[in-house]
Design a protein around this nucleic acid. Structure first.
Length: 805
DNA sequence: AGCACGCCGACT
DNA sequence: GTCGGCGTGCTC
């Protein structure tokens, strides 16, 4: 018996079809088809894309039911068997559709694009008049054209009468970029023969053929050829017709790197660094799955440890995956990797176009690179021989995907580490409590870097009590101390970074007479003002309107927008320091591609004295002349209704403080706050991680939050408030009676944003320590009530280990 | 999810 | 009598 049946996961995300379907493999495909190949199949009445997840000899499906695979889309499979296993695990761990788990591993360019076409089945004269014009030029028309012209009804009739047929076409979204090149014949004899044929009057052709004989068999860009020989396309064309050369299409990678980088060598390590590196390399040598938590204070040289561990990994002939939070994927960071490993590095982040992402992915897939530096989804880099996986800033919440599949890159990293028997490094100056607790329980191996790599002292941190400032009558955003510090930097020609917590400061539109704030029609959230197009936009659903002239409530004309916090700060800064050169970095100034980099670069080159921004600037900023960091209000993130707010604040403050004095010059940090006594603020002053950890762990223990308990968030939404609340209640009751007693269920309560896209959202929180039945129970819940809920219009979402609640 | 099949009310 | 409403069920 030979392989003749493929199990296929089809590209339809729905519960009833979230399993594999058997398809016959046509004979001519048998030798080509592999696990992880993409195929085109007929599924019911339509054509869809699918993934081959298993191959077998026979099937129980009766022959009248089974269909053949229509087309094999890849010569090389796009997914490895590791990825297929990983998808099954993700499906179970995060409760998602297998198809979603498979799709998230691939660049979006490989996703299917579905198009409908209508083709003519009879003579055009039989068609109704309204449809005729469409088929006058062609017999195949895009369905959308009928939709646009509101002709779906006559179209449907025509379909029924079989005058036309509908055809579903599956295409791939992304295209491989090709360029046209000239390939010179690789046979000198032929070239000489042609040369002899050329008439003596064709001087240019003579020149070109002579030149070609010097470049036998070479492939080049036509423009280079014209330039080199001072000829033109007409001359080349003549020689091509004689067979001296031909045009070929060559695959190329789009180049997302704008500039060349130099080459750097390994730096000398401190004792702490080499101890850490030693432990990591030992694990690599022993082919050991081991998760390390590399806890190093800011500036302690974690990156250098990564780089040298990767070097070792490459020497062993293996590949490396490095994850960094999206926001810190600045050129500064990626350049460090590219300058060490050159062309062996692929970079993946959201700033790339669909095509560029596809190309970077293909470099990995084709084995052209050995190192991937990327954001969350780079954890799925299709390497087959991974030697090390690194997550920098492991505490960052961007490692958790907020929509399906709701996976955490850290969990996937550890899974892949186990699969490849290789170490996983979680690096941070401020580890998440979860990871640190695991390190303390020896689930992870703790590596500590307590010293800064170049022995620089930590910056001096001053905490300024804004209540005192207020008492002194200072109503500005700047305390006396901060102003003095800024002034002294300006005098010394040193640089300052001012940091503003974004939350609570985003720009909104307010009526000064009645206090109304412009709200989104669909969501329970205020609209954000965008100066660039004079519009107000909802950041959650995309709803946007022009700024109204009068207040929608009271018709007053005194309506004004409150600029982003940063805009306001900038204005005020100029009042105090009219001659300071300020660079502002926020959503408004970083809208266009690359502007983020340009601003940082300009600042690095000393083109400004003060850099003012939000969280964006907290990471990876590393310039020698920055000697002052100011945090305008440390409290904004502290009072968020999230159990992680203290942790987030501590992390943020430590992070921004770390930007000052990373080189020769000593750094200073000024933190302004209304609650200086809060432990998250007080302890960040000296980067006292350990005491903060102990303190925060106590709080978590008392309140029953992670790492002591695991969380699962179940959310119910409906267009009607009562329905949402009712069903959330039903859901809670069902869970209470089906989960064990030591699981506590909180809620239902309205979600943080109680209405989103016109749907009211209620949620309940499940806290548990050990509950092996949780996932099966949740799946049971879906199974039992899915059809009823769908009828009523209820949507249910489940988030295991939510980052925000 | 999408689409066909199938059984009941308001129209030529 | 027929067109079209959307309830039910299936997709290898």
């Amino acid at each position: 018996m030979t392989i003749s049946v493929a199990e296929v996961i089809v590209d339809v995300a729905a519960y009833p079809v979230d399993r594999s379907f058997d398809y016959l493999i046509p004979d001519e495909m048998v030798s080509l088809i592999e696990l992880g190949s993409r195929v085109k199949v007929q599924f019911g009445p339509r054509n869809v894309l699918g993934f081959v997840v298993a191959l077998k000899e026979e099937t129980d499906i009766p022959s009248e039911k089974i269909k053949p695979i229509s087309q094999l889309l890849d010569i090389e499979p796009v997914l490895t068997s590791e990825m297929l296993q990983l998808a099954k695990w993700l499906k179970h761990e995060t409760i998602c559709f297998e198809i979603d788990a498979l799709q998230v591993m691939l660049p979006s360019a490989l996703r299917a694009k579905y198009e409908k076409f209508i083709s003519l089945e009879t003579d055009i004269d039989n068609l109704p008049e309204v449809l005729k014009p469409f088929f006058s030029q062609t017999s195949k028309v895009n369905y959308k054209d009928f939709e646009k012209n509101n002709l779906l009804h006559p179209l449907k009739t025509a379909l029924k009468q079989k005058l036309v047929v509908l055809e579903n076409v599956v295409k791939q979204k992304g295209q491989i970029k090709e360029v046209r090149k000239v390939q010179i014949a690789d046979n000198t004899e032929i070239l000489r023969d042609i040369s002899n044929q050329i008439s003596n009057r064709a001087k240019k052709q003579k020149v070109l053929i002579e030149w070609m004989m010097q470049h036998v068999g070479e492939t080049m860009d036509p423009d280079t050829l014209y330039k080199e020989t001072n000829t033109s396309s007409a001359v080349l064309q003549a020689l091509i017709e004689l067979g001296a050369a031909k045009f070929i299409q060559e695959e190329v990678y789009r180049d997302p790197f704008s500039k060349e980088v130099g080459h750097t060598k390994s730096l000398n390590l401190t004792e702490e660094q080499s101890t850490a590196l030693q432990k990591i390399t030992t694990a690599m040598e022993n082919h050991q799955t081991e998760t390390f938590l590399l806890h190093g204070i800011t500036g302690s040289g974690k990156t250098e440890v990564y780089l040298q561990a990767i070097s070792k990994c490459l020497n062993d002939g293996k590949e490396a995956i490095v994850l960094v939070p999206e926001i810190s994927l600045t050129p500064q960071m990626t350049e460090r990797f590219r300058s060490r490993f050159g062309e062996l590095v692929a970079v993946m982040h959201s700033g790339l176009s669909v095509g560029e992402k596809y190309d970077e992915w293909r470099k990995v897939h084709q084995g052209k690179v050995k190192v991937v530096v990327g954001a969350r989804s780079a954890i799925f880099a299709p390497f087959e021989n991974v030697g090390i996986i690194i997550l920098d800033e492991e505490h960052e919440s961007t490692y958790k995907q907020e929509d399906n599949p709701r996976y955490h890159a850290r969990d996937v990293a550890i899974w892949r580490g186990e699969y490849h028997k290789c170490p996983v490094i979680l690096g941070s100056a401020t580890p998440s409590l979860e990871s640190y607790a695991r390190a303390k329980k020896n689930v992870y191996s703790l590596l500590t870097l307590k010293e800064r790599a170049m022995k620089q002292a930590l910056p001096t941190v001053h905490i300024v009590d804004l209540r005192e400032e207020l008492k002194k009558g200072n109503r500005s955003m700047f305390s006396q101390e901060l102003l003095e510090s800024i002034e002294s930097r300006l005098n010394k020609k040193e640089q300052t970074v001012l940091f503003l917590n974004r939350r609570g400061y985003s720009s909104f539109v307010l009526c000064r007479d009645c206090g109304t704030v412009l709200q989104c029609q669909n969501c329970d959230i205020s609209l954000t003002y965008h100066r660039s197009n004079e519009k107000c936009k909802c950041h959650y659903c995309g709803y946007e309107i022009y700024v109204p002239k009068t207040c929608p409530q009271c018709q007053s004309e005194h309506i004004r927008f409150f600029g982003t916090g940063t805009q306001k700060v900038e204005e005020e800064l100029y009042k105090f320091f009219p001659h300071a050169r300020v660079l502002r970095m926020d959503v408004d100034t970083t809208k266009t591609k690359g502007s983020h980099e340009q601003i940082l670069e300009a600042f690095g080159e000393g083109k400004a004295d003060i850099l003012l921004g939000t969280q964006m600037i907290a990471k990876g900023l590393d310039y020698p002349n920055i000697t002052l960091v100011g945090v305008l209000s440390a409290d904004t993130s502290l009072h968020l209704p999230d159990f992680r707010s203290a942790e987030k604040t501590f992390q943020l403050l430590t992070q921004v403080s770390g930007r000052a004095g990373r080189h020769e010059k000593k750094g200073e940090v000024v933190i302004q706050t209304y609650t200086p006594e809060h432990y998250a603020i007080e302890l960040s002053k000296d980067q006292f991680y350990e005491p903060f950890y102990e303190r925060e762990m106590m709080m978590r223990h008392q309140a029953g939050y992670p790492p002591y308990y695991y969380l699962a968030l179940v959310q119910v939404s409906h267009e009607d408030v009562m329905m949402a609340a009712d069903y959330a209640q039903k859901c809670v009751e069902w869970l209470r009676s089906n989960l064990s007693f030591n699981v506590s269920i909180i809620g239902p309560t309205a979600a943080g944003i109680s209405r989103l896209q016109n749907r009211y959202r209620y949620q309940c929180l499940i806290k548990y320590k050990i509950e092996p039945e949780l996932i099966p129970t949740l799946m049971q819940l879906i199974k039992l009530y899915r059809s009823e809920w769908i009828k009523k219009g209820i949507l249910l979402s489940i988030d295991l280990d939510p980052t925000m609640i």
